[in-house]
Amino acid sequence: MREEYGQKQDVLLCPVKRISVVYNLKKAPSPSEPDDKYEEYDPISTVQSVADTLSSFGFHVSLCEQDENFFDRLKEQSPSFVATLAEGRGNARGREAQVPSVLESLDIPFWGSDSVSLALALDKLLTSRTLAGENIPVPLAVSFRAEEDLGKIPSLFQRNDRFVIKPRFEGSSKGIFTDSVAHDPSEMEEKIRRLWHRYGQPALAEEYLPGDEITVGILGNEKPRIAGMMRISPSTPGKEFLYSLEEKRNYLE
C-alpha cells in the first residue's frame, strides 16, 4: 500500500514466539435466522488445522475465539502475532474490521488486510465507487434501501437487460442464489424485497457480467506479488453462470 495512505513502507521484522489464532466458530442458525447466517464462519476443524500447521514451525499457538470473552482471552494469551480468520460479529457493514481494529489499537501485528480495507471491501457499493474513482472499470451498481428507491428500477432496464441482486454488506456469496439474476422489473423488485426481509440491509442491483470468476491472492504491501490464481468456470458452457451460495456449497458436484 502506498505511503500516502499512512502505511509504513517497510515492516520491521521482530521475533515471533506466541501466535493466537482468532476466529468465529460456525454454528447452526436458529429457526428465525437465514440458513446462511454463519456461512462465513469456520468449523473447529479448519481452525485447528491452521493452528497445527503454525505449531509445526515451532510457534506456541493458542486458539482465541472472537466471542464475549475475546478481550480477556487475548490479554491472557498476550500474543506477539495474530493469525486472524475472524469475520466479525453481528450484522454491521464494518464487522470484518472489528478484530483488526482491536489489534491495531494494541499494536499487535497480524496477517491480512488492515481495518480500513476490510471495512470498505465488505460494502460492495463503496468498493465500487472507490474503484471507479481510480478509473478502474466497474459494473453499474444501484443501492435499494427503502420503498421509495424502487422507482429507480424501470430506468435500469433501459441500460442493461440483466442484474444480479445481492445484499450490500455480505461476503461468501451470502444472499446470492442461483435465481438471483433479475431479467425484468418485476423480478428485480421481488428479489430486492426478499433480501430486505432476509438480511435487514440494503439490496444492491449490479449489472450482470457473463464469464468466468477469477480470484487472485496477493501478498505484500509496498511491493505486492501474486500468490496464486483460481478460476471458476461453469460446468455447462454458455449457461448463465453465477457463483452462488449453492455453487460454493456443492463445489464437489
Rank of each mutant, 00 (worst) to 15 (best):
S45P: 08
F144E: 06
S80K: 12
K124T: 03
L252W: 10
D149M: 05
A83M: 14
E147D: 12
I44M: 12
D184P: 03
G133R: 08
T84K: 07
E206H: 04
V164R: 07
P154Y: 04
A83I: 11
V61T: 09
E247V: 05
C64H: 07
V50M: 07
V99N: 01
V142F: 01
D212S: 15
P210E: 06
I44V: 10
D114K: 00
N91D: 10
Q48G: 10
G88C: 05
R145S: 15
E206S: 02
R162T: 04
Q7T: 15
E253V: 09
L209R: 13
I218C: 09
T84S: 14
S78P: 04
T53I: 06
L118W: 09
L150Q: 11
Y38F: 14
S49D: 13
Q7A: 15
M188V: 05
Q77C: 07
D42Y: 05
D52M: 07
R194G: 11
P224V: 01
T127W: 02
P34Y: 00
R73C: 11
S32K: 07
L25I: 10
P29S: 06
L13A: 13
E96I: 08
K248W: 00
E96A: 13
E170G: 05
L13Q: 15
A141K: 02
H197S: 15
A227D: 05
K27V: 11
P234D: 09
K248M: 00
Y5H: 14
